[in-house]
């Protein structure tokens, strides 16, 4: 394993938790007022804060408050369309990760959110609308099994039923080979970076 390789992400499994709704934006995943901090530590407890509690701190109807979804251990989030839209804040996937979410299965994801997840080694895989609905229903009826997301076979398996999933080829490659954290790879090419920069006229302030 070279210095630029991390955890190989091929098979992730954990208790599923469905977050129903389209266009769940990152302001909902982590409200801005919890971002006044210089580290991501502690973000997990604020995930979905305003959907979980009202202004007086009373628990609202939200899967994270639902006794059926309180099993300990790793979690797989189930979501609908355009999950993670809006602000680029990595605080959103960081909050989910720190709460226990290790993979997300959904109908579709917003670009920046998807990239942030991959950069943290969290796979986001897509399934068809019908399959997501079926999965969510199956989980709500009986949440007591692990959902397994397999990046080799590109399947999500729940309680014996297998669903086909897809993701971006590049993201899949990075996750499986443990190269999802780009920093090491990018730094390896610093000499090439310097020669690319040297050819850009603005880097030289347009002087010869």
């Amino acid at each position: 394993m070279s210095s630029s390789e991390g955890r190989h992400v091929t098979l992730v499994s954990g208790r599923p938790i469905p977050f129903r709704g389209n266009e769940i934006d990152t302001d909902q995943i982590i409200p801005a007022r919890y971002m006044t901090a210089v580290t991501f530590d502690g973000m997990g407890q604020y995930a979905f804060q305003d959907l979980r509690f009202d202004g007086e701190g009373n628990a609202l109807d939200h899967p994270m408050n639902d006794p059926r979804f309180q099993a300990k251990g790793p979690r797989i989030a189930l979501v609908n369309k355009n999950f993670g839209c809006g602000s680029s804040r990595e605080h959103a996937p960081q909050a989910l990760w720190r709460w226990g979410v290790q993979a997300i299965v959904g109908e579709s994801f917003a670009d920046i959110f998807f990239n942030n997840c991959v950069a943290m080694g969290i796979p986001c895989v897509q399934a068809s609308e019908a399959d997501i609905h079926a999965l969510m229903t199956a989980v709500e009826e009986d949440p007591s099994h692990d959902l397994a997301v397999n990046l080799e076979t590109m399947t999500a398996t729940y309680n014996g039923t297998e669903y086909g999933v897809r993701t971006h080829d590049g993201a899949r490659h990075r996750l499986r080979t443990g190269t999802w954290d780009a920093a090491g790879i990018l730094v390896d090419a610093l000499d090439d970076v310097r020669s690319t920069a040297a050819k850009l006229p603005y880097v030289q302030d347009f002087r010869d």
Binding site: E90, N116, H168, A182, V187
Partner: peptide, 19 residues
């Protein structure tokens, strides 16, 4: 717009891995 891990990437290499 980029996330924090990518801010680190740019600081460390002046580059991003992008599609």
């Amino acid at each position: 717009g980029i996330g924090t891990s990518q801010v680190r990437d740019v600081l460390a290499s002046q580059c991003l891995a992008m599609h």
